[in-house]
Nucleic acid binder design. Structure first.
Lengths: 166, 166
DNA sequence: AGCGATTTGTTCGGATGCTAACGAACTTCG
DNA sequence: CGAAGTTCGTTAGCATCCGAACAAATCGCT
């Protein structure tokens, strides 16, 4: 996502458009860079890790959550992953056909569906996730450990504000 | 995007899955929280600001970039906004029909299309953007000014690493 | 000048993800 | 019990966005 204009140039232009209006440029920069970083990171991970596996981003998240917490109910997967249950239905179908996980109706509650990994799914994740994490490390490599932890904290704070007001 | 499990619980589970493998949990936390924060922020802004206008997120970005830099070539809009030119074609069509901007073939280069705002488009943005910025301020309100600026810097650093390696 | 290579915006087909509506299963409470 | 309400996963319909292929325009090289 290349950007021909620097932030300073953009601010100058905005100031020209809105005159003396009291805008918060710092907040603007945070939000703008948040999306830029998230998109760039997702594209990077999709190309460097996921492309070879044929997994979509969401499919990988589903696989990851299931791998960590199995056996797990589908509604929990949707919660952890942050997408709708309708989306999950489709992705679970795909992953089941590919043989990475399987669904089973719950004995205790006929509405629920429990999801578990297949051996093939576990094999895949046990090699795929370390690779993934290695690239995550690369992504944050320009920040020293202290700043890395601060960054995670601040992102959590933003999530809390925006998720709280729903 | 509620998450029933804390990061610490997740780390514990992952450690159980991968044993003594040297994983970088800090990097994992940064990436995970990056997506969570970006999604939550986008949802928040779509509901609190954009829903009333009937604009999609992408449409708003296109409008904003055009507003700031008009007259502007379409390829520049795609660059600044970070989406494909195929996506841009459709969004530009919608915004042109709604009367917020207009396209004109370039005199100098017959392949290029220049985009300018209509008066209606400028009127919209001159009230919409201050509202938008006000919510951006809310989003970052839990961070003091110094940390806000550090956050923007760190996000920029991440973008640079991930965009550079394409 | 002329012809192949490149660039640009558009079109097309496909993938993805969401909301709303639904049926099935469970819970609540009279 | 049993009827009303709730919760769950699925389905259907819709909007969004992208990559690949394409036509038109321009550029570059001889």
């Amino acid at each position: 996502m290349p950007s021909p204009h620097t932030l300073a140039e953009t601010e100058e232009q905005v100031a020209g458009k809105l005159g003396a209006l009291p805008l918060d440029f710092e907040a603007m920069a945070v939000v703008s860079n948040l999306f830029r970083a998230a998109n760039a990171t997702r594209n990077y991970l999709e190309r460097s890790v996921l492309a070879a596996t044929g997994l979509s981003w969401t499919a990988f998240v589903v696989l990851w959550v299931t791998w960590i917490w199995e056996p797990i109910e589908t509604r929990q997967i949707a919660d952890e992953g942050g997408f709708s249950k309708a989306t999950l239905t489709g992705v679970l179908g795909t992953l089941e056909v590919k043989g990475y996980l399987k669904r089973e109706r719950s004995d205790k509650d006929g509405r629920l569906v429990n999801v578990t990994m297949t051996p093939a799914g576990r094999t895949l994740m046990s090699t795929l996730f370390p690779t993934f994490n290695d690239h995550e490390r690369t992504i944050t490599s320009s920040l020293d450990p202290k700043r890395r932890s601060e960054l995670a904290d601040m992102l959590r704070a933003i999530t809390q504000v925006t998720e709280g007001q729903r």
